[in-house]
Design a protein around this nucleic acid. Structure first.
Lengths: 143, 143
DNA sequence: CATACTGTTATATATCACTATAACAGTTGA
DNA sequence: TCAACTGTTATAGTGATATATAACAGTATG
């Protein structure tokens, strides 16, 4: 489970956590029953306040994605798996649609969009590493 | 000049305005010398506070994209054209990078991303029209 | 039972975005 | 000059986010 948080982003930190936990479940990085990092642990690694993590978990629970038990921790819900499978391809499609809408707004032709797409794809292995920087990052391998 | 604003979005309203004015300039919808809607006019149409529009214009002026004159209004700067040209392709590249990062997070292979990309590109003419809905909208034809 | 983890709650503080209201100042044209 | 537009500034209030600090409560294990 890998988490990045950017406190300078307009998107609230707790919302960033919610989004990324959803992704982790969708990607299969987190399976049903898996424990999430404790409030204090994640807060320490991300260098944010535990209450902020708690708020993210609270929302995830309200959405039924995780179950949280006092004194035990928070766990990926059993029912979280099924809707998550389609999430990946759908999320990509939504992202691409957003780019295409942008292209229309900007008066950039689709041919040029494809050009840029292939260009970024070629550059991906390098540029993506650069992109990861900036936010605080946590690699969670030791659970 | 068409503006959409969503007050429920995490992105501040003033930032949304800044972004969309940049797009309008980049797309050629606004040319150098063109007048922007007055603070009060745009505020009324978008149903937001004039100060919020003022904040957006202030930032646009600091970035050199517009020039604002007391008692007259705000106008697209003459020098705004050249940097705006790159804005389009850059914005597209940024959007694509975001999609590629998402793909990595979701465990979706780049080949599949390309597949989805071509698929959405083919579907674009229809699907893009539906996307424009949502948020308050202002079409500004009477200036 | 004591310890050490869990989540939960309360209080206070700070910052940012947005609003409401109001007044002030520059520009233009009747 | 006066009216009707422009942008500008000041003040105050609201809500959301995040912080620091602290205490409280459930669970498991030695």
């Amino acid at each position: 489970m890998l988490l990045r948080v950017d406190t300078t982003d307009a998107v609230p930190v707790y919302a960033q956590i919610v989004e990324q936990v959803k992704r982790a479940v969708a990607a299969g990085v987190l399976d049903a029953g898996d424990a999430l990092p404790s409030l204090r642990e994640m807060a320490m690694k991300l260098r944010i306040n535990p209450l902020t993590v708690g708020r993210a978990y609270k929302q995830l629970e309200q959405e039924g994605l995780i179950e949280t038990r006092h004194g035990l921790g928070s766990f990926v819900a059993g029912s979280a798996k099924s809707p998550a499978r389609e999430f990946g391809r759908d999320a990509i499609a939504r992202g691409i649609d957003r780019v295409l809408v942008d292209a229309m707004d900007l008066g950039v032709g689709f041919d040029e969009v494809r050009e840029v797409f292939e260009e970024r794809l070629r550059a991906a292995p390098q540029s993506l590493r650069g992109q990861a920087a900036g936010g605080d990052e946590v690699r969670d391998e030791d659970r």
